[in-house]
Computed example of a mutant assay.
Amino acid sequence: MPRNDLTDRVTALNARYRHHSGTAVLAHALADPEAGRLALVSSFGAESVVLLHMVAVTRPETPVIFLETGMLFAETLVYQQEVAERLGLRDLRIIRPDAQDLARTDPEQTLHRRDTDACCALRKTRPLLRALQGFDGWITGRKRYQSGTRAALDFFEIEDGTGRIKVNPLAHWAREDVQTYMEENRLPRHPLVDRGYPSIGCMPCTTPVRADEDPRAGRWRDHDKTECGIHIVDGRVIPKGVSA
């Protein structure tokens, strides 16, 4: 789709749903022809169960893409299975890195020590791009409060270079909203949350976070990096420290 048409489409969607709740934004996005065919991309992380539950209630046949990088915490893998079964997700797609790509690029699984961006591209970005072929857009669980780079996040945004849109139904939610939703719906917590992990990615690149820190401070700690790169600008991995 031409850039101008895509911009108009996203602008119209943001105007149409600007004053809606996150639940309503998700429900409308899944039914609105202007949003197109959508998939939910979920890490099954600390707060993922909220959006997964919303999808299960609204349209359980929505494709759910889970990137199994090969370096996730064992707790995440167990949690993913438990949540998917409990919510009755009908189209869960577990996506793994290309085996030949892994053998060629990271045979000893040490790439994350030398180049975190290259490791994320190998294990997340490229597999996701393949998994999203045929979709008009995808749903994310990103929220403004999670980090300064997400402070201006809209419900709908453009993924430049791919012709897709991204939908962020929970963009305006506060941390308290997430906890309240989980409690009211009796949703299971990721077991690592109680051990100080408010944001959970791959095991080698995730550490616990202090109460006074940004929720994503434990991701790639001591690196000039705040995003894994699955959010794309001009068809490329976002540079360090920048969020789409």
Rank of each mutant, 00 (worst) to 15 (best):
V167Q: 02
F155T: 04
F66Y: 13
R219Y: 09
I95Y: 04
A46K: 06
V10H: 00
V233W: 11
R96Y: 02
T23E: 14
V237N: 13
V178M: 12
I230K: 10
F73R: 12
A131L: 07
M182T: 02
I200G: 07
I94H: 06
V167A: 02
T207C: 10
I95T: 14
D160G: 05
R126V: 15
D224M: 12
F73E: 08
A244L: 13
L26V: 11
D136C: 04
A217I: 14
V25W: 10
A131N: 09
R164G: 00
I158A: 02
R3C: 00
D160L: 01
G137Q: 09
Q179H: 05
D115H: 10
V178K: 01
M54Q: 15
R104Y: 03
F156A: 03
R236G: 04
Q80D: 08
E213V: 10
Q179S: 04
F66T: 03
I139R: 07
T125C: 09
F73M: 07
E176G: 07
L30M: 13
R216K: 14
A244H: 04
A171K: 02
V25P: 06
K143T: 07
R123M: 07
L77C: 12
E47D: 15
E85T: 11
K124P: 04
G148R: 02
A103N: 01
V55P: 00
I238G: 13
R164I: 01
R3T: 03
E157H: 00
P127W: 12
H223T: 14
L38V: 13
Q146E: 11
F66M: 03
C120T: 11
V193C: 11
L128N: 08
F44A: 11
G134I: 03
R126S: 13
L52G: 02
H112F: 14
T180D: 08
G241A: 11
Y145Q: 07
V41N: 07
G22T: 06
S42W: 09
T11N: 08
S243K: 15
R37I: 09
V209C: 14
G45R: 11
E82M: 11
Y145M: 08
D115I: 07
Y145R: 05
A31P: 04
I200P: 00
I158L: 06
G36D: 09
L192T: 10
A217L: 14
W138E: 03
R90E: 15
A99V: 13
A118S: 08
F135S: 10
C119Q: 11
S147G: 05
E213P: 09
R189A: 12
R130H: 14
L52V: 02
A35I: 06
E68P: 00
V64D: 02
N185T: 04
V10C: 03
I158W: 00
F73C: 09
P239A: 15
C205L: 05
G137W: 06
W138L: 06
G218M: 14
H190N: 11
P33Y: 12
D214Q: 14
L187C: 05
T58V: 06
T11K: 06
E108P: 00
T7H: 03
